[in-house]
């Protein structure tokens, strides 16, 4: 494993992030491919603009930078959608991204939408009295879906496609909300591991505070992905890379030095999240069925919005 060069070290002294050697990408090529991808997706759909949810975290910050590079910041709308418990720091980080890019931004508080369902201060909402006691998981998923609903509404007013901001690591282990944060028209970073997101973010000049801070779903104060899941991203990324991209068996990854319990646990997470990565199955009844034997590109002549 190797860290990025000292030249990228921040004021805190250490390197900005840890980059496993086998995951290092050519960031110039990645930027080139992704810029073309973003432009191609918009052109084929007949759109010129894009909209995304900016959380203050590294994933959405990187996507904002990539989209701005591909189509110009004036065609990008970043929507910040905090809940009342969201960290003010996240908001500040999101604003620093908007300032760095000079793109359009908007603040949509989702508090009323979420509390309208779960209730607040003892008064039940649309979800009934039981919803007052809803778990953090239910609340987190609901928030993600309110943000999705907001983005798809803004997609109409801004006349832009919704850009996905989920990375490969969280998609593989299923650390996403179905029809929530994973919902999008296209995703430029869904095939990049978290470590690669960090490498690309550093190369593109995403504010250092955003790269340096611990990844978090920001559902409660002090929450971090790594504490919640019990592993570090560089280790998880390497394990997923060897298991999935390089097709190493469980025994082979254990022989490489990975903890067997971790390997088996991650395997279960990946298998358990298969459904989140696919279009729901349709019961096959007619002669031609979408996704089964009716197979067309998502965009083809005639499908662009006119």
């Amino acid at each position: 494993m190797s860290a990025v060069g000292a030249g990228q070290g921040g004021p805190a002294g250490g390197p900005l992030f840890e980059l496993p050697e086998e995951l290092a990408i050519d960031t110039g090529v990645a930027r080139r491919v992704i810029a073309e991808f973003v432009r191609g997706q918009l052109r084929q759909a007949g759109f010129e603009r894009a909209v995304l949810g900016l959380s203050g975290g590294i994933d959405s910050a990187l996507v904002a930078f990539l989209v701005a590079e591909a189509i110009g910041p004036e065609r990008l709308l970043c929507v910040m959608m905090p809940y009342r418990t969201s960290s003010p720091e996240s908001r500040g980080d999101a604003e620093s991204v908007v300032a760095a890019l000079g793109c359009a931004s908007e603040l949509v508080e989702i508090t009323a939408m979420v509390d309208g369902y779960f209730g607040a201060e003892g008064a039940p909402g649309a979800g009934g009295p039981d919803a007052l006691e809803a778990s953090a998981l239910r609340r987190g998923n609901f928030m993600a879906r309110m943000r999705m609903a907001t983005l798809y509404d803004r997609s109409v007013t801004w006349r832009g496609l919704v850009v996905g901001t989920g990375n490969k690591t969280e998609s593989l282990i299923g650390y996403t909300t179905l029809f929530g944060d994973s919902a999008c028209a296209f995703n430029p970073i869904g095939d990049l591991y978290k470590s690669q997101v960090r490498q690309l973010a550093a190369a593109m000049g995403v504010p250092e505070a955003v790269i340096r801070k611990a990844p978090s779903a920001d559902l409660w104060p002090g929450q971090t992905d790594e504490a919640e899941a019990g592993f570090s991203y560089p280790v998880l990324d390497r394990l997923l890379f060897w298991r999935i991209d390089r097709r190493r068996s469980v025994d082979e990854t254990v022989a490489m030095g990975f903890d067997r319990a971790l390997v088996e646990r991650v395997d279960r997470m990946v298998a358990g999240a298969e459904f989140k990565r696919q279009v729901p199955p349709i019961a096959k009844l007619g002669p031609r069925t979408a996704g089964v034997d009716y197979l067309y590109p998502r965009r083809r002549p005639g499908s662009a919005r006119s």
């Binding site: 086998e22 995951l23 290092a24 990408i25 050519d26 110039g28 090529v29 990645a30 491919v33």
Partner: peptide, 13 residues
């Protein structure tokens, strides 16, 4: 189609 993006490859791909 370009794939297998890695800095270890000649021309990055």
């Amino acid at each position: 189609p370009g794939r297998d993006l890695a800095s270890s490859h000649e021309v990055g791909l």
